[in-house]
């Protein structure tokens, strides 16, 4: 077993490194209370706006909170939220896409017309409207983004299903008495899942950015939650005087998003080298 693993790592150096980094990020999220030396919401008003230095490696923000601790805790918010979001989109999109592709007819028409409507809205705008109506919070931001983002996966799943829908072996499954659920699970799903999982992994980074964007605009995480997008918003007005308020959350977003993007790309290279 070990030899197989070692050989895999040697053959796929890029993927392995990126996977290790991704796991590292998840570990940081898990171990945040241990790694951060201060409670991210602990504020010492008197020591506000301190520049990075001993005691506060990333400086302090306007309520005197330690920026490093907030950045570390930010992994607990941003990463799981993005993962949940992607998982929800994956599941909803896959189910609707498979159903639309397999059953065709009015089911297909209804689902695809709804998908068309969603696509014609600029995603951020619709997400803002949804978050505005339902109130601003991370949960509602996730819901809003699910509503606008499932369509890509549904279309992909549908087209992958259509590729095999009219193959003889699918008809053979019907004639030999297979139930519909069985066909969807055993025939359609395995044809759809690998591509969609790759797409989902690549999308983790993008979704993280969207969530941060919504929080930046005030429609996602609310203070005093240490979410990176929100931290960017809070630091925005001080950019000339106290640039560290924007620098560190910004770097965090850039690094984490990049790692997940590259991870998705290299996963695709492994599973589907022809494309």
């Amino acid at each position: 077993m070990m030899e197989k693993a070692i050989r895999f790592i040697k053959e796929n150096k890029g993927f392995s490194i990126l996977l290790a980094l991704a796991v590292l990020i998840l570990l940081i999220a898990l171990l945040a209370p241990v790694l951060a030396w201060q409670d991210p919401t602990y504020s010492d008003m008197g020591s506000a706006f301190q520049a990075p230095g001993p005691g506060h490696l990333f400086g302090t923000d306007r309520l005197g909170r330690d920026v490093l601790s907030r950045v570390i805790y930010g992994t607990r918010i941003s990463v799981p939220a993005a993962l949940i979001l992607v998982l929800a989109i994956l599941v909803i999109g896959t189910v609707l896409g498979i159903v639309a592709g397999y059953f065709g007819g009015w089911v297909d028409t209804v689902i695809m017309r709804i998908a068309d409507m969603m696509i014609s809205f600029p995603g951020m705008v619709l997400a803002i409207a949804v978050a505005g109506i339902m109130g601003a919070s991370i949960q509602n931001a996730i819901i809003a983004l699910v509503v606008v983002s499932w369509t890509k996966y549904a279309r992909l799943a549908r087209s992958l299903v259509l590729k095999i829908r009219h193959e003889d072996y699918v008809y053979a499954a019907v004639t030999t008495g297979s139930k519909v659920i069985y066909i969807l699970r055993q025939y359609m799903l395995p044809n759809v899942l690998p591509t969609l999982v790759i797409t989902a992994t690549t999308d983790i980074g993008a979704m993280m950015l969207e969530l941060a964007g919504l929080s930046f605009l005030g429609f996602g995480a609310q203070p005093p939650i240490p979410e990176w997008g929100l931290m960017l918003n809070e630091g925005r007005q001080y950019i000339t005087a106290y640039p560290w308020l924007i620098l560190f959350p910004g770097l965090a977003i850039a690094i984490v998003v990049s790692i997940f993007n590259l991870l998705g790309d290299s996963l695709r290279d492994i599973l589907d080298p022809r494309s």
Binding site: T41, S43, M45, R62, L63, G218, Q222, P223, P224
Partner: peptide, 22 residues
């Protein structure tokens, strides 16, 4: 809004829970 957040943080110090709704 900055006052509201700062006051909420101050109340936290004496053990009183408050939530800011902007």
């Amino acid at each position: 809004q900055e006052f509201a957040e700062a006051c909420t943080a101050s109340m936290e110090k004496i053990g009183i829970k408050a939530t800011v709704k902007a």
